[in-house]
Write a protein that binds this DNA or RNA. Structure first.
Length: 534
DNA sequence: GTTAGGG
DNA sequence: CCCTAAC
């Protein structure tokens, strides 16, 4: 998150992210950030670091708020230092913050949570908070106005800082040259993009206000990472303890289950010696694997706790939904973070990244082929990783039918080697399961056809063409599945000749029966003739 | 290691 | 698609 000043001197909240990110995630942040603000007054544009530009004027033009005032009024405030204008551009290089705003402050707020902090402040004190947050002179409209103005920003400040793992923002209390300096610094991976500071001389600030400021500063400081704790000078160790207790009370959002699983997988990679399809259980090692699996589950649970604990250590984890950890990402920081010196830098990184680094395999990315990555991601045994469901394409189904017609049923591993060697995500078990499903579909197709007429849309998603099912039925006649016990493990040639022999036997039996029936008929006819003769 | 079968 | 037993 950043607060920056446009060319016209209008301060603006906006969300920015470093590193590859989805525009929708930015939108999500903007949604969070601008919640509670009503009026549409501004249009803007944010260029993401990945050069993906997301024009949010269409969606968020009604949520961007801005503050009125002359462009220089805030800068001319006595005792206020300005460091932020333009820093964002300098820091992010290619990024631009092209924000053009008309000026008319119309701030509304709906959320009263952050206003609790402001309830005990006078209008003048709120003005001071406002000025230090936004570096703006605030006209007094009514007693509530500064609160209205501050509360959404403060609320978003807190929510974003508790949720964002990309930026650190803190309102710090420092003793600086005999003055109590209240500063709000915004950082991107340690680089200051803007620092908003307001200083008040001790004599200029009432004791009551100083106390309130300190409370506010304490609350804000809890949102900062440990890397900043050393910079935060709290009044006493008691207060620091209280601050820690508060931090423990307000926990960050727990990472989603999928994220934990991905994390567990990355750890299991570290411990795993064998990866890929070949890493499967053997009968002899079954019990061992079972116990190992249980251990891994415990490790996963411990890891979850570790993850949460680490979140307090380095700030808060904000896990982007739908962005599973890529295996290749794990190695990116590996080389630079192996040394002891770099351990301190971990605190500036996301805790998730830190854990990823810890559990990343020693192999470099180049040493791992894409195929192997897929295998690791989807089929590694021993982890709780759930295989991503990928629906069978028609070409895969045709390949399966071809495989059955060539190899017969039951030789799934051979089929996998012959026809599905390029499909790393299709195991022999998958092929077998698909054939079973096709058999079911072919058997019930006639019944389904009636339903299809009634509910076409329901069947449209996974409907198998009738021609394919017809072919499946033909193959099912030739290769009944499941096979008989005697046929299992035999070749298709053997099965063919076995079936041929069976057919011959059946025909021979039929001939014998026919002959016997004929003989019986002849015998009966002879008997009849003999009786008639006498 | 591979396959069958239940879930 | 997962899991387990059986081979």
């Amino acid at each position: 998150m950043a607060i920056w000043q446009t060319g016209k001197g209008v301060w603006l909240f906006a969300a920015t992210l470093l590193g590859p990110c989805e525009p929708l995630y930015v939108v999500e942040l903007l949604d969070i950030m601008f919640q509670g603000m009503d009026n549409a007054v501004c249009h803007g544009r944010i260029s993401l670091p990945t050069c993906q530009e997301y024009l949010w004027e269409a969606k968020h033009s009604d949520k961007v708020f801005k503050l009125e005032g002359g462009p220089d009024s805030c800068l001319q405030n006595a005792g206020l230092e300005s460091h932020s204008p333009g820093v964002y551009k300098e820091c992010c290089g290619a990024e631009t913050a092209d924000l053009s705003c008309e000026s008319t402050p119309r701030l509304g707020y709906k959320d009263n949570r952050s206003s609790l902090l402001l309830d005990h402040m006078s209008v003048q004190e709120r003005q001071l908070v406002f000025r230090n947050m936004f570096r703006y002179e605030t006209p007094i409209i009514d007693k509530q106005w500064p609160k209205h103005s501050i509360s959404p920003g403060l609320q978003n400040f807190f929510e974003l800082e508790s949720g964002s793992n990309l930026a650190e923002c803190g309102l710090m209390t420092k003793k600086n040259e005999g003055k109590t300096v209240l500063s709000s610094s915004i950082e991107f991976f340690g680089k200051d993009t803007g620092t908003i500071k307001g200083s008040l001389s001790d004599e200029g600030m009432s004791r009551d206000l100083q106390v309130k400021w300190k409370k506010l500063a304490d609350l804000e400081s809890l949102k900062t990472s440990n890397s900043r704790v050393s910079e935060i000078e709290l009044c006493s160790s008691d207060e620091r303890d209280k601050a820690g207790a508060f931090a423990m009370q307000k926990r960050s959002r727990r990472p989603p289950r999928r994220y934990i699983e991905e994390l567990a997988q990355s750890k299991s990679k570290f411990y795993s010696r064998k990866c890929g399809v070949a890493c499967k259980r053997s009968k002899n090692s079954f019990l061992h694997v079972r116990s190992d699996k249980n251990n891994r589950q415990k490790e996963t649970q411990e890891e979850t706790l570790l993850c949460q604990d680490k979140s307090y250590e380095v700030g808060c984890i904000q896990v982007p939904f739908g962005l599973p950890v890529e295996a290749g990402q794990l190695e990116e920081h590996n080389s630079s973070l192996n040394s002891e010196d770099c351990k301190e830098d971990h605190k500036l990184l996301r805790s998730s990244e830190k854990l990823e680094i810890e559990y990343s395999p020693a192999k470099s990315r180049e040493e791992i082929s894409d195929d192997e990555c897929v295998l690791r991601r989807s089929t590694q045994k021993g982890s709780k990783q759930i295989k991503h469901y990928t629906s069978w394409t028609s070409s895969e189904v045709m390949k399966l039918i071809e495989g059955v017609s060539q190899c017969g049923v039951g030789r799934w591993s051979a089929m996998k080697r012959l026809l599905f060697s390029s499909c790393s995500h299709r195991t022999a078990v998958d092929i077998k399961d698909k054939w079973r499903n096709l058999l079911k579909a072919s058997c019930t197709q006639l019944q389904k056809e009636r339903k299809i007429k009634r509910d076409i849309s329901k069947q449209a998603s996974d409907h198998v063409p009738e021609s394919v099912l017809q072919r499946v039925r033909e193959l099912a006649v030739i290769y009944p599945y499941p096979r008989r016990k005697s046929q299992q493990g035999k070749s298709s040639v053997y099965v063919f000749f076995s079936s041929l022999s069976q057919v011959v036997v059946v025909i021979w039996s039929a001939l014998i029966i026919a002959v016997r029936v004929t003989n019986l008929a002849i015998y009966l006819l002879t008997c009849v003739v003999w009786l008639l003769a006498f």
